[in-house]
């Protein structure tokens, strides 16, 4: 299911020509509504849930949601991108939270 856009957090990445999610989506699905200045997904059925847009969003405004037909309300999974490290926070439908943090890239010493 496509990312849900938190319109209070989304800035449409103004004044960039493309928002970060629009720039990165492998399916060309994310776009910005010019009038509202907010990101949206142009075709929810085509989303692969790769979470590239969620990782790219500088405002934490995007969240991938499980389609209800497949999973129950409401679990959350949020990536936080660090330098050479990624942290994932996952909350299941019972409110149980788990955090995963590990190295995702070797940064050479400079």
């Amino acid at each position: 299911m496509p990312p849900v856009v938190d319109v209070h957090k989304c800035s449409g990445c103004a004044p960039r020509e493309e928002s970060r999610c629009e720039e990165v989506c492998p399916g060309d699905l994310m776009a910005v509504d010019i009038a509202a200045g907010k990101a949206y997904c142009r075709n929810p059925r085509d989303c692969w849930d790769c979470m590239s847009c969620v990782k790219a969003c500088p405002n934490g405004a995007l969240a991938t949601r499980m389609p209800y037909q497949l999973g129950y309300f409401k679990a959350r999974l949020r990536p936080v991108m660090g330098k050479g490290v990624i942290t994932w926070k996952c909350v299941d439908i019972y409110g149980k939270e788990r955090t995963y943090k590990y190295r995702n890239r070797i940064i050479p010493d400079t």
Binding site: D49, C50, M51, T64, M66, L70, G71, Y72, F73, K74, A75, R76, L77, P79, I86, W88, C90, V91, D92, I93, Y94, R98, Y100, Y102, N104
Partner: peptide, 23 residues
């Protein structure tokens, strides 16, 4: 289990969300 979840997060992160959505 933690190592397995990290593997999933590396390849198909939304599967971890799926398991969480099934509780």
């Amino acid at each position: 289990v933690r190592a397995m979840m990290e593997d999933y997060l590396n390849e198909r992160p939304s599967f971890v969300l799926f398991l969480a959505s099934r509780g």
